[in-house]
Design a protein around this nucleic acid. Structure first.
Lengths: 384, 384
DNA sequence: CTGTTAGCGCATTCAC
DNA sequence: GTGAATGCGCTAACAG
């Protein structure tokens, strides 16, 4: 059986096709009596507008494209996941669809965007994981393709360029709050475990820790540096880095060397004097790093060292790590608002004032009672 | 500037617009000379067929719908993620697109499917996470909507019904291999940590362990039961369950009780006699469970107990757990093949022989050298 | 307010 | 082989 069309509805409702279309698209201009009659007919037939036809006519796809990362950064992958979910849900509420595509490199992503664009499949794009000198945004602006990024245009002088819409989470603020919370608990030597610089996101997050430590304790550059460790974003890497810090008795950037000589030997030495470890607490740039730190400190007998991660991944919840949560619902909502405008129904090249073209969203610190491996009571189960 | 259309190409190539269409869709029937001329024009103009128009004309969307789970099972969430990526990539290669939607319940999912279907937005659906008495598949079959599931129709008498296309990973085989591998290493008392029954996937996986243990050691029901522990799929839950097993000196289904009384007290007792723990190794139904077990055994001083998880998530890689990997590329490829047929271009209600309507894919055991927390050398970094 | 006319870009008939 | 019609389902313009 064929799907009913406007024509069928019109016949049943005793009106012209066009009136049916009006009832659908601008109900206000149709007289109430006929409108209800048409709506009754629509309900009776179970009519749904054919979106391919509508799109062809309107020259719009009402579809947003988003790239699925090939291998999202390990444990933190769940972030893009949750963002995608929020985005899909909110887009649906606005009558938009989310179309996926994949690409291994930025260049390939640009090529895919071009394809989707030229086939008129996608009206606008949502980009994630912006980075220094990102070629994608430049290209999109040059080609007048509407887009919004989840992530600031790191490294660009003018982050307020209204041509580049962006939404981001205020990592600085989140880490600041986390650090303050530790200081309020009485910790003084609060360390930072971050990514190698330069890293837009990473440096922003670290600045929150720096600000808090300076503000509360009046620390200088040298003191901050002594509390700061760097590692690539992998659990073994982070573990090695923290072990290195344990061994040297301070938190310093010696991780690389120790990592090369073998962290397992290092931890054996560390076992001799864990009390000398110069930290009261640790704030990390990601849950992955935090998990590495947790493993290192637990193994060294430093069970009670408070650790705070970033992203509030399922893993953090599972092992009882406190973490800074990104409100991805708000990010998704913000992205759509910027793209569509508050009115809500025009996907086009935006024309916003500089201060309306961006959203910086405050994250939320999720405190967990045990910040070490969970040997206490089980939490309410995720039944399966 | 407007996108070029067939008309434009036709004008440039000095042919009718129909010929252009033929060059695109059935190149074979066009004379070589004109074909190359048309292709040159296409290249010159950068022409792309408008897919909305094509879809309207063909009454096909060339789009597959897939639901994004609201909260994929914790750590294992990465599985759907990777599947989605593989699916998107392979669908793209076949000229298909993946459209996302969300739904909180099966009923809501059915409603969404209906909507997408009636709006002619989606030709076929890919369902994940099938379960006992799944209402979705029944409805889809009744409404003659093409679909394929990632997961077998658990609980249905006839899993070979050719109306229900499915692809799945042979969990039994994976766990069997894992168990055999442990037995080959010399382990004899290999325990099983699984989900509460009944669970389609879980019971299937457990049967692999049972088969291996029966086959190699001739174990009876009672002996198997004594080596078998159950827990819901959460790290704290699994930890508690394993702790309970440690305390009782055997691996049994007492986890529930001990979990209620508090696992932290239990582990204190366990510390007294970890050597009495009656297991040589442990196989788990998921990485989440394996992580819980790892935490429990590590804390109890049982560092060397081999543990094997399932799913090969980033977390397993991070902490050095061996795990059974699902080849999601193959699953995705299989799903598309079943849906489209080997020919590759007809998305319709399938008409396959029973034995061609399904794919059971063999998983692969990923062995890692340390199956405890990674305090050895860092592995090659995931640079960021 | 309602109905009529005219395409959106394409592919499937058919003629030639 | 190639070209000329026709219509997929819808809505923007206009006419009434």
């Amino acid at each position: 059986m064929r799907q009913p069309t406007v024509e069928d509805v019109a016949r049943i409702a005793q009106v012209s096709r066009q009136t049916v279309s009006n009832v659908l698209n601008s109900p206000a201009i149709v007289k109430l009596a006929t409108r209800t009659r048409v709506q009754a007919a629509i309900a009776e037939l179970g009519y749904r507008p054919n979106l391919s036809a509508r799109r062809l006519r309107q020259q719009k796809s009402a579809t947003l494209g988003i790239r699925l990362d090939p291998m999202m950064n390990g444990i933190s992958g769940a972030v893009l996941d949750r963002f995608l979910h929020a985005l899909t849900e909110q887009a649906d509420a606005r009558g938009l669809r989310i179309l996926l595509f994949t690409a291994a490199t930025p260049e390939e992503e640009i090529e895919q965007i071009r394809r989707l664009r030229e086939a008129a499949e996608v009206d606008a794009f949502v980009l994630t994981a912006t980075f220094h000198e990102d070629p994608r945004t430049e290209w999109l602006i040059a080609n007048r393709i509407p887009f919004v990024t989840f992530g600031r245009p790191w490294g660009i002088d003018d982050m307020t360029d209204p041509q580049h819409l962006w939404v981001d989470v205020d990592g600085r603020q989140g880490v600041y709050d986390a650090t303050i919370s530790l200081l309020d608990q009485g910790a003084r030597r609060v360390g930072w475990l971050g990514w190698p610089r330069p890293s837009g996101t990473g440096d922003d997050r670290r600045s929150g820790w720096e600000d808090a430590m300076r503000e509360r304790l009046g620390l200088g550059e040298a003191e901050l540096r002594a509390l700061c460790t760097e590692s690539h974003d992998g659990v073994p890497q982070a573990t090695a880095a923290v072990v290195a810090a344990l061994v040297t008795g301070r938190s310093a950037a010696l991780a690389g060397n120790v990592a090369k000589t073998g962290a397992s030997a290092a931890v054996a030495e560390a076992g001799e004097g864990p009390d000398d470890f110069g930290l009261d607490a640790l704030v990390c740039a990601s849950d992955t790093l935090a998990l590495g730190a947790l493993i290192a400190t637990s193994s060294a007998g430093l069970r009670d060292l408070p650790i705070i991660g970033f992203d509030d991944t399922p893993v953090a919840a599972a092992v009882g790590l406190s973490s800074v949560m990104q409100p991805l619902d708000e990010v998704a909502a913000g992205a759509l608002e910027l793209l569509l405008g508050p009115t809500g129904n025009t996907v086009g090249v935006p024309n916003l004032a500089p201060n309306e073209a961006h959203r910086l969203i405050a994250p939320r610190l999720v405190k967990r009672r045990s910040n070490h491996l969970p040997l206490s009571e089980p939490s309410p189960s995720l039944t399966r």
